[in-house]
Simulated scan of single mutants.
Amino acid sequence: MNKELKLFPNYPTPVANELCIRALGISESMNKSFVRRTQGTGDYLFMMFWNEVKLSTLDEELLIPSNSLVIWEPSDSHFYGNEEIVWSHSWLHCDGSLIKKTLKHLKLPTKVPIRFENPIFFDQYLLNLYHEVVNESLVDPSIVRSLIEIFLRKISNSHMGAKKIQTPSKFQSIKEYLVQNYDQSIQLEELAEMAHYSVPNFCVKFKEYFGDSPINYLLAHRLKVATYLLTDTQKTISQISNEIGYEDEAYFSRIFKKRYGASPRNWQKSKLKL
């Protein structure tokens, strides 16, 4: 892995009128943390995770394996990180019609992890890009454009060649069932029966397809919904606890604090100050 390197131009580096390199980072190390950007960054973000992290949306929380890339569009919010270990990532902020057009042409997915067997190329292209744009007065638009186009095509080729794990429809239905019925009392035996597996085998298969156990998946979704409900100051902690399926407010507060590092009330206060 390359030595940590970051570039934030004094102003966005324009390349003709169709491409703008805003910032890039190579092998940036992060403390135990979870990044939450509800408004995104207003540009395209390509992020390669070198360690296992969690990627969160309102609908689900995924455990992303190491050597995985996620692409976000300008309007996307970002929720990712690992609060248990120090982790590292490489990233590129860019914008312009060239990015939008090429992503569409190559049919690259956004907001979902793309796993790579050999992702070394990612840092190699970022390093080449860094050397090309670090001195803005000497930027050659043709070279930068070519680097970006080859970079995106390399991602596409690696993505197309990657081995994909197909999720059976019955497991996809069970995941949707958890998301839609998170406020109900759900038993493992019930889910295993839906999949026609024993409970132990069902748990193994569920984690294989979705990166976490069914209980942890349900817990993560409930707590994610709770963070959204906590932004509604008209609701009490007790009401929110009941709405996500926990009659015991004290238990809800304990598991919330364990996950987010603060009680629901203190978490709510910190967000209202922003």
Rank of each mutant, 00 (worst) to 15 (best):
L218H: 03
D76I: 03
H78R: 06
N157L: 15
A262N: 05
S270F: 12
Q234S: 13
T102P: 02
E4R: 09
N2C: 13
Y182H: 05
D59N: 07
G96I: 06
I64G: 01
I21R: 00
L127M: 10
K205A: 07
K3G: 04
S90Y: 02
I155V: 15
K163A: 13
P65I: 07
A250Q: 14
K205C: 02
Q180C: 08
K6Y: 07
E249S: 13
S169K: 11
A23V: 05
A220I: 02
D123V: 09
F46V: 05
Q124S: 10
S66Q: 15
N17P: 02
G261T: 10
S158H: 12
E208I: 06
F202P: 00
L106H: 08
R145W: 07
F121M: 02
N17V: 06
V15M: 02
H89T: 07
L218V: 04
L98K: 02
Y197N: 08
V144I: 04
N242M: 08
E18N: 15
Y251I: 08
K111P: 01
W72C: 05
I143K: 06
N31W: 09
G42M: 10
F151G: 00
F122L: 07
P119H: 05
L98F: 12
L152V: 07
E149K: 04
K257Y: 08
H89D: 07
N82F: 07
H89K: 10
E73G: 01
R254K: 15
T231G: 06
N31F: 09
H105V: 06
L129F: 04
S27D: 09
L45A: 03
R22S: 03
I85D: 13
K154N: 11
N128R: 14
I186C: 03
